[in-house]
Design a protein around this nucleic acid. Structure first.
Lengths: 146, 146
DNA sequence: TTATAAATGTAGCCTAGGCTACATTTTTGT
DNA sequence: ACAAAAATGTAGCCTAGGCTACATTTATAA
């Protein structure tokens, strides 16, 4: 082979560090939408497509496509011209994200990040926190409390 | 209007919390590639397309498309059948990501995240850390040191 | 009730990022 | 030098997620 090693003689191997971003992208969208639909239902009693689109800052057909995908993946249900609801597994995902969001936010604030920045960054970060890290966050907060 | 408010009477407004993920996606790819190209050049003296593809875990035409985009955005240069190089602004981006990566990793470790989880999660998190949060991270680490 | 407004559905287009298949150019090894 | 292997380029396809434009249904108000 021409160059599975190079001038420095080090082999190049796939780096797990980089291949999560792309695979995860799709998942992030699902998580954002379920989280938001859950928020809407809690705060307003229902999740209308128009409201979902407004909150996500996208045009309504974009939200409609996303909802179609949620339904395909078994996370949501809806009937024509009616609101959107989460299935049990959709609710589970929303709850999971809620917990993560809370913990990430609390950790950021605990280490001194201003509240506004913490809130914005938490939304991006919460999708990339593994279970191990989450557990460490809980332990850290418990320790900080006392 | 039919429902810019709803049964609970609360207005629905775009939530900045949700509209970063999508806009940012594109940026994340650029950041990952510049970071990795910089790594390759430092460690191996050059960044070959094949190595970039291997590291990213994608097929080589995918990497070629990404490099084409980096060039379009003024972050990289390359000649046919030769390695890829970063422009000054590409180097700047790589350096920015290197600093972020280091800080995020150190903060995670400092609050008790196991090293392996910290390394993996840092790669996802580093793209979502604002300047404010980064500054808070630095302050936190400085405080932890003593 | 019935016209109008709002919400939702649908079609069709674009770009990004993934792939395979195949063509071309470099590099390697004999 | 030259054949084979490796690297790179290119074409073309797919899906996701964004949009606008337009059709249809539901809700509101006169």
């Amino acid at each position: 082979m021409a160059r599975s090693k190079n001038s420095e003689g080090k082999a190049i191997e796939p780096n797990q560090r980089f291949d999560c971003a792309r695979t995860a992208q799709s998942q992030v969208l699902l998580e954002d939408y379920t989280e938001m639909i859950d928020d809407l239902i809690r705060e307003h009693g229902e999740a209308r497509l128009t409201d979902i689109a407004k909150l996500m800052g996208v045009a309504h057909p974009t939200a409609a496509k996303a909802v179609a995908r949620l339904k395909r993946e078994g996370l949501a249900t809806s009937k024509p011209y009616r609101g959107v609801f989460l299935t049990p597994s959709g609710l589970e995902m929303a709850e999971r994200m809620r917990v993560r969001h809370r913990l990430v936010l609390d950790v950021l604030v605990a280490i001194g990040v201003p509240a506004d920045a913490a809130e914005l960054d938490a939304e991006g970060i919460e999708h990339h926190v593994s279970d191990k890290t989450l557990a460490a966050f809980e332990a850290f907060l418990k320790k900080s409390d006392r």
